[in-house]
Design a protein around this nucleic acid. Sequence first.
DNA 1: AACTGCTGTGACAAAGTCGTAACAGTGGAG
DNA 2: CTCCACTGTTACGACTTTGTCACAGCAGTT
Lengths: 226, 226
Amino acid sequence: MPTILIVDDEKDIRELISVTLMREEDYKLLEAMDGLTALRIARERRPDVILLDLMLPEMDGLTVFRNLRDDARTKFIPVIMLTARGRLEEKITGLELGADDYMAKPFSPKELMLRVRNLLRRANPNRGSSVIVSGPFSLDKNALRLDLEGSAIDLTSTEFKLLLSMIESPGITQERGDLLKKVWGYSDLIQTRTLDTHIKRLREKLGQHGNSIETVRGVGYRFLEA
Amino acid sequence: MPTILIVDDEKDIRELISVTLMREEDYKLLEAMDGLTALRIARERRPDVILLDLMLPEMDGLTVFRNLRDDARTKFIPVIMLTARGRLEEKITGLELGADDYMAKPFSPKELMLRVRNLLRRANPNRGSSVIVSGPFSLDKNALRLDLEGSAIDLTSTEFKLLLSMIESPGITQERGDLLKKVWGYSDLIQTRTLDTHIKRLREKLGQHGNSIETVRGVGYRFLEA
DNA sequence: AACTGCTGTGACAAAGTCGTAACAGTGGAG
DNA sequence: CTCCACTGTTACGACTTTGTCACAGCAGTT
């Protein structure tokens, strides 16, 4: 079910949107009333679409938007900006910054529906399954890249496969034999330090998060859940 | 039969929920009216799902929830939070803390049914099976780790296997020969002090709970049930 | 009390495991 | 071709785990 995050400090608007959306399709709705909360929710729940009002207390909408785009976890979530009719400058700035759509209040329910559906349709195929997220880690299978707290870390393909194998089942210990088979295609029996070496290289690249990879002596390694 | 714990101080709500749930499926229901009782029941009976109202006398729902998550015995029990409609902050906090679902009162019976069934389906297969619990002990097969009253104790793989062999049938005496066969693969006849040595090391690591392992002179050892 | 068989304990050596550095082979990019 | 990042392998030190032994202590019996 698609998840939609609504960011607006006016309760009426939030309810109007909820009602409008829910009338025709099944969505999961999240709501935030201020920018900081919105950013937090966006990072943690990773909605499929964000409806972002530009008039917010404290942190204004454009700033929220920039923050969304600067963080790997939320970089690709489509955003529809909302604002009072006629504030042309904001509109221009917003679209310049890369907002995916823009709506002036008051908007018609039908229009809202259409825009949301539109974004959902075009947004999903690209990403979704190719990005795996766990805590501050975000693995992009296509780019073979790891984003850690927003900054990119290049991994070699072996390192990537290794990390992926562990991160796919966080908290579960992967036995040495299993990892060797999965990543290298070796049979279980083999006696080698290759695995250890690559674990070491991974830990180095993960920096302070290196200890997310835990050694389970006599068994293997496991990735700690966030 | 799945067990469900209802935590709410309003009798009406508890009854409403009971009636709703029992109408369609067979559940075993437990009830608690305050946080402390809820925690105790949760630890002792280990329900499959907990319905937790956030408005409770004395200890509030979020605190109860944190306590549930901090204790290895209840860490993985899915929780559905209940609260009066519109208390958005609580909802956000709850979900942030890792609540598995959330419902605003008043809720429709059908919705309740669906969410409970949903959680039951998805909760157990993944994680449940790897953790074995007995009294204050909680063995995590994945981490080869023992949680004793919430704090972690590292065990070597031999110690782990040994403890597991005994804890799987609490109260039943395991003969020396059986343990040697199970843990070490030795034949029964062998004469060795190895078993005793490892029992000793286990008792040491268990600290004050070391006497949960009882010697049955001339036969073997047994793990006392809580 | 003395005896006897079983258990607990501390010490130790052997085996096993892990992390690390160094090195060499490989293949692709320029 | 040359360079270089990537990879697998080896050697080695540090540390942990394990099994064994000798012996002290204990429980139940006589």
